[in-house]
């Protein structure tokens, strides 16, 4: 367990000291969301209608941008081989890296969401549920993304392939995430959607580290 937490701390420390990691993802998220009002026009009722979807799609794409960071740098400098030879099972090692990715790349997006939601004219009830839905559903993004990242690690032009592999699998999260927020705005029960998101997260938590570990074994073979 100690090794597990140490690995998470190491990855977070690397991301923090690199500095640009946080700001880059956040800036991308903010810029991407800003493009929508410019594209569809500034009418507040239209923005309120598309707000949940815009924020979720923005979060999906921002997460996608950082996926290659999970394994790529460690693969290039050889630390990945070192980690895989270590006593920590590869599945747990992948899980630790996934948790670190979620904490450094996805949680900042959740924290900045309220400000963007206000700019999209989202009612206050919606904003809280938006954050809750992101908190419950976004682990799926890191988990499924890690499988894609593992499969494309060490590949030239892996990024484009990664998005083709991963984005279709993100669709259920997008659908239930948006449904939860829209239900909350319409004062309908949003519990089932949140529970479904939690179910997706737990399912992915079981399957994805195993699949990502299999992909990594293949990559360093």
């Amino acid at each position: 367990m100690n090794k597990f937490t140490n690995l998470i701390i190491r990855d977070i420390r690397l991301a923090v000291r690199q500095g640009s990691a946080f700001t880059m993802t956040l800036s991308f998220f903010v810029v991407a969301v800003t493009l929508y009002p410019l594209g569809v026009g500034p009418e507040l009722n239209i923005l309120a209608r598309i707000g949940p979807g815009v924020l979720w799609v923005g979060a999906l794409l921002s997460c996608l941008l950082t996926l290659d960071r999970i394994f790529q740098a460690d693969f290039e400098d050889g630390s990945l081989d070192q980690l895989m030879l270590g006593s920590l099972p590869i599945e747990l090692m992948t899980l630790a890296k996934i948790i670190a990715h979620w904490l450094t790349s996805v949680v900042p997006l959740i924290l900045i969401t309220p400000i963007l939601a206000v700019s999209l004219n989202m009612p206050a009830d919606g904003i809280w549920v938006m954050m809750l839905a992101l908190l419950v559903g976004s682990p799926v993004l890191s988990l499924i993304g890690a499988v894609g990242a593992g499969l494309t690690v060490g590949m030239r032009r892996g990024g484009v392939l990664l998005s083709l592999l991963v984005l279709p699998l993100y669709i259920p999260v997008l659908i239930f995430g948006v449904a939860a927020v829209e239900a909350a705005i319409a004062v309908l029960p949003m519990g089932p959607h949140i529970l479904l998101l939690a179910g997706l997260s737990l399912g992915a938590l079981v399957i994805c580290p195993i699949a990502a570990a299999a992909a990594l074994r293949l990559a360093v073979e």
């Binding site: 499924i144 499988v147 399957i207 699949a211």
Partner: peptide, 9 residues
């Protein structure tokens, strides 16, 4: 093998 992992997921 990579394709097999993908298709199973």
């Amino acid at each position: 093998k990579a394709a097999a992992i993908l298709v199973l997921i």
